[in-house]
Amino acid sequence: MRELVRTNDIVLVSAIGALLDGANIHHLVLDQNMSVIEGSLGILPRRILVHEDDNRAARRLLAEAGLAHELRPDD
């Protein structure tokens, strides 16, 4: 799995999820249930991951949607 985005913005997480779903790119959102521990303060960022095989397509999709600045560095 490759990390695409790490953010505290739950609206952005939802928007990226919708884009990936629309392109049939399976993804995982990690740490979204951490609000139980942090007290719903939004301190801990959520991480969006995709399978290695979908990494390039997902990055291209987000870049075309104007979200390239949100992408984590691609190692």
Rank of each mutant, 00 (worst) to 15 (best):
R46K: 14
L4G: 02
R47S: 12
V29D: 02
L41K: 12
H27T: 06
L67Q: 07
A57G: 04
R47Q: 08
D54T: 11
E64K: 13
R56L: 14
H26M: 08
A68M: 08
V13C: 04
A68S: 14
N33Q: 15
N24F: 14
A23H: 11
I25A: 13
H26A: 14
L71D: 00
R6L: 03
E38N: 05
D54I: 09
I16A: 03
N33F: 12
P73R: 07
I16L: 03
R60L: 14
H51R: 15
L20R: 00
M34T: 14
V29G: 00
L67E: 09
I16C: 01
T7D: 08
E64G: 09
N24M: 07
Q32P: 00
D75W: 07
N8R: 15
D75G: 13
G22N: 05
I25D: 03
G22A: 08
V36L: 14
Q32T: 07
E52N: 13
S35F: 15
N8L: 06
E64V: 01
I48Y: 04
L12F: 04
R60N: 06
I43L: 15
E3I: 10
E38A: 06
R60V: 10
V5Y: 06
E64R: 11
S40V: 12
A65I: 07
E70R: 14
D21E: 10
N8I: 12
S35Y: 14
P73M: 02
D54V: 01
H51S: 15
N8G: 12
A68C: 04
G42Q: 09
H69W: 03
E70Q: 13
M1F: 08
L4M: 04
E64S: 06
L49N: 03
V5T: 11
G42W: 02
V5A: 09
S40Q: 15
D74K: 05
D9H: 02
D21A: 13
L12W: 01
M1N: 07
I25N: 04
L49A: 06
D54K: 08
V11G: 06
L20Q: 01
L71A: 06
N33V: 10
R47F: 11
V11R: 08
V11I: 13
A18W: 07
S40K: 12
P45R: 03
T7M: 11
D75T: 09
G17F: 09
A63E: 03
I37D: 05
L62H: 00
E52F: 02
L30A: 12
R59M: 03
A58T: 02
L44D: 03
L4T: 00
L30P: 01
V36C: 02
D74V: 02
S35Q: 15
R56M: 11
I25E: 06
H26V: 09
L49W: 08
R6H: 01
P45D: 10
